[in-house]
Simulated assay, not measured.
Amino acid sequence: MTKTVEFYFDLGSPATYLAYTQLPRICAETNSQLTYIPMLLGGVFKATGNASPAMIPAKGRYMFQDLDRYAKRYGVALNFNRHFPINTLLLMRAVTGIQLRQPERFQAFVDCLFTALWVEGKNLSDPATVAAVLNEHGFAPDGVLALTNDETVKAALKDNTETAIKRGVFGAPTLFIGNQMFFGQDRLDFVEEALRQV
Rank of each mutant, 00 (worst) to 15 (best):
Phe139Gln: 02
Glu104His: 14
Phe139Asp: 02
Ala116Lys: 04
Leu113Ile: 06
Cys112Gly: 09
Met92Gln: 11
Val133Glu: 11
Phe109Ser: 11
Val95Asp: 10
Arg93Pro: 01
Ala94Thr: 12
Ala140Pro: 01
Gln102Trp: 09
His137Ala: 08
Lys122Ala: 01
Ala140Arg: 04
Asn123Glu: 10
Val130Ala: 13
Thr129Val: 15
Glu104Gln: 14
Val110Cys: 13
Ala128Leu: 14
Phe114Ile: 03
Gln99Phe: 01
Leu124Gln: 03
Glu104Ala: 14
Glu120Ser: 09
Phe106Asp: 02
Leu134Arg: 12
Arg93Glu: 15
Phe106Gln: 08
Val119Gly: 02
Met92Val: 04
Ala94Cys: 04
Glu120Cys: 03
Asp142Cys: 04
Arg101Val: 09
Ala140Cys: 06
Gln99Leu: 08
Asn123His: 01
His137Ile: 05
Trp118Val: 08
Asn123Thr: 13
Leu113Asp: 08
Leu145Trp: 14
Arg105Trp: 01
Asp111Cys: 10
Glu120Asn: 13
Ala108Cys: 01
Gln102Val: 02
Gln102Ile: 02
Phe139Pro: 02
Leu100Trp: 01
Phe139Lys: 04
Gly138Ile: 07
Met92Thr: 02
Phe114Thr: 01
Gln107Met: 07
Thr115Trp: 06
His137Tyr: 11
Val133Trp: 12
Asp142Ile: 05
Phe106Lys: 05
Val144Thr: 00
Pro103Asn: 10
Asn135Phe: 08
Pro127Cys: 09
Gly121Gln: 15
Ala132Leu: 08
Gly138Lys: 01
Val144Ser: 10
Asp142Ala: 14
Ala131Lys: 12
Thr115Arg: 14
Glu104Arg: 11
Ile98Asp: 12
Ser125Asn: 10
Ser125Tyr: 05
Asp126Pro: 05
Thr115Phe: 02
Thr129Lys: 01
Ala140His: 07
Cys112Ser: 15
Phe114Pro: 00
Phe114Val: 00
Val133Leu: 06
Val144Met: 11
Gly97Phe: 07
Leu100Ile: 03
Gln107Leu: 15
Glu120Val: 03
Leu113His: 05
Gln102Phe: 12
Val130Phe: 06
Arg101Gly: 01
Asp111Ala: 07
Phe109Gly: 06
Asp111Arg: 11
Trp118Ala: 10
Ala128Ile: 13
Arg105Leu: 13
Glu136Thr: 15
Val119Leu: 03
Pro103Thr: 08
Cys112Leu: 07
Ile98Gly: 06
Asp126Ser: 11
Asp111Gly: 10
Pro127Tyr: 02
Thr96Trp: 12
Trp118Glu: 09
Trp118Ser: 02
Thr115Leu: 03
His137Glu: 05
Leu124Ser: 04
Arg93Gln: 13
Phe106Gly: 00
Leu117Pro: 15
Val119Ala: 01
Ala108His: 10
Val133Pro: 14
Ser125Leu: 06
Met92Cys: 01
Leu145Pro: 00
Cys112Asn: 14
Asp126Arg: 07
Lys122Gln: 11
